[in-house]
């Protein structure tokens, strides 16, 4: 039982982290809260499905293609939707939210609501770890999730460009003086964020069927773990995911699976009410009592 909890808690936590990674990266690099995150996530899932089932592409190729397309779409969203309203938080949130809803409801209208929609797993089979059976796809998710988190942490903390981008979200003038153009950086941050949403989708969705409402859940999960960890902190994202991940698995086991959603929604509300800068956020702005 305990081993079960531990292992599935780990899987669930990494799933959450992977789900939120793109949202967190975009916010950290450009300060845009991309409310289209859930829409982009599902778009990648459905695109991969279309590439594989309608065009007959090999599974891996279809998935990579879907990720690339969604990444490009992210850049386009910045260029054509966010750029005109950049700096007006209200409009940024509303317009990305609108994009997300439009994508999701478009697929609902097109009839992508039956049980036929699922992605193939990349690696078949399973293995037993201390008595708990776990399939290779879940192990793959853990590997990809941890690798991406490490890579991102390295990118934002130890590469010149990553540091500059991160600095830009705090102080645009400084970044300009280092020779980075903010529009280019914004496009990059949206593209990377959207691409990561795509990666998360194509490795996580094979675990079950694809449903539209998942898109809304994905956005909420992203909000929950990033808020819990502190919006701009990579460490916070990891810890936030594990916090929510294990809490979900524990409540699901003891109270019933329908409690899972209550946990992450409750986490958003609770954290914002009690410690809005999150567990690891040290935002000077939030410390000011205004």
């Amino acid at each position: 039982m305990v081993a079960n909890l531990l292992i599935y808690g780990l899987v669930n936590s990494v799933v959450l982290m992977l789900t939120a990674l793109g949202f967190s990266l975009t916010f950290g690099l450009s300060g845009v809260a991309n409310f289209a995150h859930g829409g982009l996530y599902l778009l990648a899932g459905f695109l991969a499905w279309i590439f594989i089932n309608s065009f007959g592409l090999p599974a891996a190729l279809g998935m990579i293609l879907a990720v690339i397309v969604v990444g490009i779409l992210g850049a386009l969203i910045y260029r054509f939707i966010l750029m005109p309203v950049r700096g007006i938080v209200l409009s940024e949130v509303i317009s990305t939210f609108a994009v997300g809803v439009a994508i999701l409801e478009f697929f609902r209208w097109k009839g992508f609501v039956t049980y036929d929609f699922s992605l193939p797993v990349l690696v078949q089979g399973s293995v037993k770890i201390s008595g708990v059976s776990i399939d290779y796809q879940r192990l793959l998710i853990i590997a990809i999730g941890l690798a991406l988190a490490l890579l991102l942490w390295f990118f934002t903390h130890h590469t010149r460009i990553g540091l500059a981008l991160r600095g830009m979200s705090q102080d645009e003038y400084t970044a300009l003086s280092v020779g980075i153009e903010s529009d280019w950086a914004g496009m990059l941050s949206l593209a990377l964020g959207a691409g990561l949403a795509g990666v998360a989708a194509v490795v996580i969705l094979p675990l079950g069927i694809i449903s539209i409402n998942m898109g809304y859940d994905v956005l909420l999960i992203a909000l929950a773990v990033t808020v819990l960890g502190g919006l701009e902190s990579t460490t916070g994202l990891v810890v936030g995911s594990f916090f929510v991940g294990y809490a979900m698995v524990i409540t699901s086991t003891y109270l019933g699976p329908q409690w899972g959603e209550v946990v992450y929604l409750g986490a958003i509300v609770l954290v914002l009410a009690v410690k809005p800068s999150g567990l690891f956020g040290k935002s000077k702005e939030l410390e000011e009592r205004v």
């Binding site: 909000l223 929950a224 929604l265 409750g266 914002l272």
Partner: peptide
């Protein structure tokens, strides 16, 4: 964020 989450919660 909170007004988005609370009704769903």
């Amino acid at each position: 964020m909170i007004t988005f989450a609370v009704p769903l919660l």
